[in-house]
Amino acid sequence: MVLVVSGLLALAEPRFLNASNLVSVGTGMIYDLPVAAGMTLVLALGGIDLSVGAIIGLTSVVTAMYLRSGGSVVLAVPIALAAAGGAGALNGLLVARFRVAPFLVTLGTMSIARGTATVLTSGYYLSGLPPAYIEIGRGQLLGVPYPVFVVLGVVVVFDVLLRRWKPLHDAYYAGTNPPAALLSGIDVGRLVFAGYVASALAAGLSAVFMTSRLAMGYARFGELAELRAIAAAVLGGASFSGGTGSILGAALGVLLLAVISNGFVLLKLSVYWQGVVSGLILVVAIAVDASRRRRNESR
């Protein structure tokens, strides 16, 4: 599918295959990849996380405020991840412990996180970050920005762990049939909690790179990121009913979305169409999921 879309795009607009364009498609995926990976885990566990986009905004603001108050660049990243992880822990607690429907919990925390970020900044950009911090996102090794390596590493490690590491692999059991997983000795509650924390941490990582590369903290960073992540994960094989999905599949989903949106830019279509298309992509993802389920049931 990725290949088909890429091929069509290359035919329609030869510039698609320019090395510089391909690099820009690749770096454009830095932000979405970790979030989609985290979302895959949450979906595999039978949940959903709508708060990741807002967590990106909150983390970005917190990081920028810390740096502007003279904080150390070394500590800025751990602090960003702690802020994100804290929000994820709140999600995990409410879903795993208090059994509130995940979409409600994360809709609520989405609003809280986005609102808090806006309150903290009164809606303004926070620029003037120290150059050393900006270097984290913009610095290059062999002509490739650092974040590309980090994100690729995270995706590969995450993929292997979800595939092979027993404590994480149990997510598939927990998402397929939670009571049966419990009776098989799997601590479903702890796993679900960990899933939301991991998803938030991934969003935090995305926020670190966004804040650094764009050299500012902004409350509205990460808008609609949760929806792109859901679409990518579902296109990559995850299901709203839990128990399936892979990080590699989600990464391909992100790639597909990136190619499509690159196509928009190249073909000079109005950015306004992007909203329609992302909605339609979600509809397509839902339909794909529905037909997969139907096929399974009819067997």
């Binding site: 979409f103 306004y272 909203g275 979600l282 839902i286 529905a290």
Partner: peptide
Amino acid sequence: MRQVLRVHPFIVTLATMLSLKGVNLVITG
């Protein structure tokens, strides 16, 4: 869509919300 796709209305209406917001932008520029 809720009936045909048999998914939770939350997901269906989320997709509608997104697409429609895009449509709003397109028709007004």
